[in-house]
Write a protein that binds this DNA or RNA. Structure first.
Lengths: 233, 233
DNA sequence: CGACGATTTGAATAGGATCAATGGGAGTGG
DNA sequence: CCACTCCCATTGATCCTATTCAAATCGTCG
């Protein structure tokens, strides 16, 4: 990787408490590479050769079984994926593809494990990252088990509205509706119908542009819960 | 806790690579305690005061939202729960209750975090445990998203059959059917119907006693997948 | 302009949930 | 030892949600 890329990587939470020496060793073995959209990166069942870090762009994690496919998560900058498989030196549980042109950092798995053993600051950061990933999945799992499709969509819209709301009080869906549907555990047709169901609650849809004109009403329906919907912690 | 309990705790994977000194410090602050069945241990949203380790018995992790409740996981000896919340020093995402008389080890959260920083062997064990928990949830999440109720039940029965099959080629359900239903993401009524659906595939049910008389046929229906159904790794 | 993919809409179906009622032990008290 | 009770499990009937299949529409890109 190019020396000019180092500072931005160094600043990532995963690496900022690392010792200079071990960071240098890790980076010397790594690749910072830009991939086009819709490129398959890894496939479930393969041995975990690299730890991936999304620097720019977006990566979709998905899983398949028996002819069906489901989106498991979307990874944005700055997030890692398949950390657990790398640490345990076992096969990936999920597949990954880029959903946009993306700059990714690929760190050889063995080097990650070496650094984990030799650098306490890195070990602590790994633990925090892993614990964060774990809690993220638990939240998704809770949401899927405890909510109907419409409730899931409503809560997701409220979340995006908080995170992305622009000057006009509107926001743009971060993924196409097909992907969003899969992420929420429903079919595209059903997502479309769910949007219609939410129209009386002040959800205005124009393509990917969404405007919430009655957040109170939508919240009354969605009943957002901090232990499911709040990111971080 | 009693000195006589120490060896069995020391033998747990989570502690066996720990230094004597830090293990002693951790245990000196901990409690090994037996709880009756059906006792509420923790509730989601509470701050993470203790790390729990199940030594004997069984603990149900569940979550609630908006009047609904769902079983998230069952923890058996020797497994920990709510490790991530302890490490991040944030609120529990799940509630826990004993489902049988259970012997639990309670380790104060602050001591766990201290030991994590001061004992490399413990840090490595924590990382492995956490990574294992993470992959466990991902598998459950995959199963829920990719399979119908009947398929989930079929795969679960195949798993129990491998793990618990006795001399007569039968096994006993590890939990009552109500709990099993919630764990599989369905209602008790639906579980009952799913068992009926599986009768033509050689699933004989007598109360909690299950006998699989045609594993091939059941596997053909269930299509078990190592990246979902195999425990460990 | 034409083609393709994404989205929406409609109709029919299937899968699961809910409500209600019945059977079946396990435990309790007589 | 036997009734009684309670809770779990099963069954039936109905309702609701979501999936599937089909077709129309929209928008974008050559």
């Amino acid at each position: 990787m190019r020396p000019s890329d180092l500072p931005q990587v160094r600043a990532l939470r995963l690496f900022d408490s690392m010792e200079d020496e071990s960071f240098a060793a890790l980076m010397q073995a790594s690749y910072l590479q830009t991939f086009p959209a819709q490129l398959d990166l890894i496939h479930e069942g393969e041995p975990a050769d690299f730890l991936y870090v999304v620097i720019e762009g977006c990566v979709e994690l998905y899983a398949s079984s028996n002819g069906r496919e489901a989106t498991m998560a979307m990874v944005h900058p700055v997030g890692s994926f398949i950390l657990a498989a790398v640490l345990k030196d076992v096969a990936y549980l999920m597949s990954a593809r880029t959903c946009a042109r993306s700059k990714l950092l690929l760190i050889p798995a063995q080097n990650v494990r070496d650094a984990l053993g030799s650098d306490d600051g890195f070990a602590r950061a790994i633990v925090q990252e892993l614990a964060g990933c774990y809690r993220g999945v638990v939240k998704e799992y809770k949401s899927l088990k405890l909510r109907t499709s419409v409730e899931q969509l409503a809560n997701r819209l409220l979340r995006y509205n908080k995170e992305r709301c622009d000057a006009h009080g509107a926001f743009e869906l971060p993924y196409d509706k097909k992907t969003l549907a899969s992420l929420l555990g429903m079919t595209p047709e059903n997502l479309s119908r769910s949007f219609n169901t939410l129209k009386p609650y002040g959800v205005e849809v124009n393509g990917a542009q969404i405007k919430l004109t009655d957040v109170k009403a939508l919240e009354a329906l969605a009943k957002p819960h901090p232990l499911i919907d709040e990111r971080g912690n």
